[in-house]
């Protein structure tokens, strides 16, 4: 049993990236995603990768942790590569032919392109959560959604919901691990049998996990009411964050670089 650093968990620090306004980081991540989606060749991806590498270096988040986040999607990556490069009809395969299966060179390149794209998306988004505490993240989201209050969108409530959800992810992961160990100690096996049998093996984990989750949600709601939580209206906040000159410069420079890369390459 390894101690999991759940994908996207906050890594406390005091780097330049940590100190940026959450809204700026969200804007930059959005621009980054846009760039990664719009570039059409490896040159564009290379620029994106370079920017991501700089951001990771400046953020002081250990690269090991970033890699671990990518490893979490390794199955998706492998599947992407295989789906693009494998050919059932060997006649169309240009690289390798083994019996009825072949590997296509062009497909392999396309597959690699998508793999790199996914890796960059994962790194970009996880860097946001690695360097922004859940409270600041929720606060930033609320501020971004604030204009929607004009159309009666409950920005404060949604932000609170997201904060609570983020807060519960590590707890729930830990609890799931505890329950799995407890059921293994009662002889449960998760690694044998076909797909259906394996899925069924998780019933003894999922049932108590959800029961506990609902119970805890109920308790939390009661506790919040008992402490006079009253939705978004007139709420004071712990962290007062505002845009500094650095934030504006980072937003402008980063945004321009990424959007122009996306357009040109």
């Amino acid at each position: 049993m390894k101690a999991p650093v759940p994908f996207g968990q906050y890594v406390p620090g005091d780097s330049f990236v940590h100190r940026l306004e959450p809204r700026v980081k969200m804007g930059l991540v959005a621009a980054f995603m846009l760039m990664v989606f719009t570039v059409e060749g490896f040159a564009g991806l290379a620029v994106a990768a370079g920017l991501a590498a700089i951001a990771v270096a400046v953020s002081s988040v250990p690269p090991r942790i970033v890699v671990r986040g990518v490893r979490a999607v390794s199955i998706i990556l492998a599947f992407t590569l295989i789906a693009h490069s494998l050919r059932w009809n060997p006649a169309t395969a240009t690289l390798i032919r083994v019996g009825p299966i072949g590997v296509d060179a062009q497909g392999l390149i396309t597959g690699l392109f998508f793999v790199v794209r996914i890796v960059l998306l994962v790194i970009g988004t996880s860097l946001l959560t690695f360097t922004t505490s859940p409270v600041r993240l929720a606060d930033g989201l609320e501020r971004l959604m604030r204009p929607l209050e004009v159309v009666r969108f409950p920005a404060g409530e949604v932000a609170m919901m997201l904060t609570v959800a983020l807060r519960f992810i590590p707890t729930t992961a830990e609890e799931a691990e505890k329950i799995i160990v407890a059921q293994v100690a009662r002889g449960a096996r998760f690694d044998t049998g076909g797909l259906i049998k394996r899925a069924r093996a998780y019933v003894p984990v999922l049932v108590p996990l959800f029961v506990n989750l609902f119970r805890r949600a109920d308790e939390l709601a009661t506790a919040m009411e008992a402490r006079c939580y009253r939705g978004g209206e007139g709420r004071t906040r712990f962290t007062e964050s505002r845009m500094t000159a650095t934030d504006w410069v980072a937003l402008a420079l980063g945004g321009i670089t990424m959007i122009s890369t996306g357009v040109v390459l």
Binding site: E175, K178, I179, V181, A182, Q183, A185, R186, G187, A188, R189, V203, P204, V205, V207, P208, N212
Partner: peptide, 28 residues
């Protein structure tokens, strides 16, 4: 070696107490 974890009631999952208690021996 049987082990009872901290807050073991967290591991209860079956539709009845009898079925839950029988889970271990069935796995054996």
């Amino acid at each position: 070696v049987g082990i009872v974890f901290q807050s073991p009631e967290m591991q209860l999952f079956a539709e009845s107490v009898a079925a839950d208690v029988a889970f271990g021996p069935r796995n054996q």
